[in-house]
Amino acid sequence: MACAIQVSDLTKSFGGLLAVDHIAFEVKRGEIFGFLGPNGAGKTTTQRMLTTVLKPTSGTIAIMGYDLRKAPFEAKMQMGVVPESANPYLDLTAWQNLMLMGQLYGLGKKRRRARAEALLAFFGLSDRSRSKTRGFSKGMKQRLILAMALIHRPRLLFLDEPTAGLDVQSARLIREHVVDLNGKGTTVFLTTHNIEEAEGLCDRVAIIDGGRIVAVDRPAALRAALRSAQSVEVVFDRGLDGLESLEALPHVTGVKKAGEGYRLHTDQPGEVACLVADLARAKKRKILRLNTLGPNLEDVFVCLTRKA
């Protein structure tokens, strides 16, 4: 199956600053692809090149098989875009904003009216459709922006930090809609620094740091590859006098106080759990809780972006 996005040797420099450094990746059709990175890593610059807002310094991009440089019109017709911290037109109503976007994607009057009505209902904005968006809350604006990006039923949806700054309910609603759209076949390219969100939504993620891709894989595969980020969490009935006795255990690479207990980092969590039990007996402590923990995506992210 052809890729939704194919990027090869993509570079962007601003003056002497290399913001994106010869990156290459592919996004398969039908997947939710997360694009993660710390601030200033090159996430938004990459998305802006993918959505034709910025011209690459070098490299090629294909969207649904269309070369972005040679066939930008065809490529743009395939995509819906929610840019970072975008706004609807505040002096237009929600309805007028949707009509404008429908016109800009070439929808006929009848079709764009039907789509706008359906989208407003889907996003719970029907009762505010004739209100100017100046009075909308941030969550309502974000839902409208998503609706505007979906007016032409795009096959590929770009989302740049779609839930940043939203309250819990609005963020959850947006995430549910994204999953729902993906279930109907829309490919999603999600740029975010919300690792929890990426882990919950994405089939695969790419991690970018310093303008370079440092990893592309399924979240589970990335976690599995990071054996050193495994740990054992233990809670005793009484605290230990210090961390020394835990630090002295074989295979333990680090110990941290974690809430009422301790977190011991190791690449052999099973063996360390047994040693902790022995230590508890020796120190006359009861174990209230003992867990072995795998790395989460945040551990992977921190590890990879620290190394890069």
């Binding site: 802006r48 743009k76 995509m79 875009v81 840019p83 505040l90």
Partner: peptide, 14 residues
Amino acid sequence: LNKTLERLVSTPAS
């Protein structure tokens, strides 16, 4: 300034 231009540029309108 109002963050509407980026979306406009990303539409098929040249």
